[in-house]
Amino acid sequence: MITLRLIQQPAVPLEAECLTPDRLVELTNDQIRAAVLYHGKRQVRVDEFFQVDGELSDAIELHGDLSRVRHLGRQMSRGTVTIRGDAGMHLGAQMSGGKIEVFGNAGDWLGGEMRGGRVHIHGRAGQQVGAAYRGSLVGMRGGSIFVDGAVGIETGMRMKRGLIVAGGRASDFVGLQMKGGTILLRQGAEIRTGAWMQRGTIISLVDLQLMPTFAYSGTYNPTFANVLAGRLAKLGTELPFDVSEGGYDRYCGDRAVPGKGEVLIWKPT
């Protein structure tokens, strides 16, 4: 395992896209220390900001308040990144595999345009979780993001596949222009959930304020809720699906597009 401890709080954002399992697995301790980060406009060595222990491993653990450290785990395809503290923007952006776990909060664009792998944030996450970057037509394409706490606006914007689970309340525009995949909201969301969605599923376990362009289309327990619940159970989280417990109100839309997405709101009996 490689352990990186933040020894100095950066004065301006520190861009650390080189701190990924794919890269560090090939580097000796000396090479990791000498790897280049960007502190604002200046190139700095990793050891100017981090105490580095270990080498040649695809398991990375970071300690400290890393809320100003951006692009950690960017494009990673393997291994683990464990952060004991807060993480900055673009954590796990464009990752395709491996696992990221944060015992703290994460910043904006968590798992932005990710293609695979798993992310678990024990605290909150910022805006645009699993979203598309500006101008890009497709956000997250695969993998899963679990956030135990709240998530910011535009969560899952333009996502095409994959799963986002928000344990806390979500802000506005969840699943904006969503094209596929699943978003589970355990504590519901603010307004404009599912706005302009084309396809995909948003499930809320509490009541939601919906856009006027969604239409009610029945109450039922979809088969996939059962399947999803099984998958989630393995990850230590529950999804109700038993008919005896209740049912899902199904709304489809967004008719402005017009889209064939669905929003399922759990109604316990």
């Binding site: 706005a195 856009m211 006027p212 362009t213 008719r255 402005a256």
Partner: peptide
């Protein structure tokens, strides 16, 4: 504003919108 504009997007395509939903705007 966003709701109103989104309703208009649906209406120009002759998508059904109920009065109650519109009234909220």
């Amino acid at each position: 504003d966003f709701e109103l504009l989104t309703i208009l997007r649906a209406m120009i395509k002759d998508q059904p919108i109920s009065d109650a939903e519109v009234a909220e705007t």
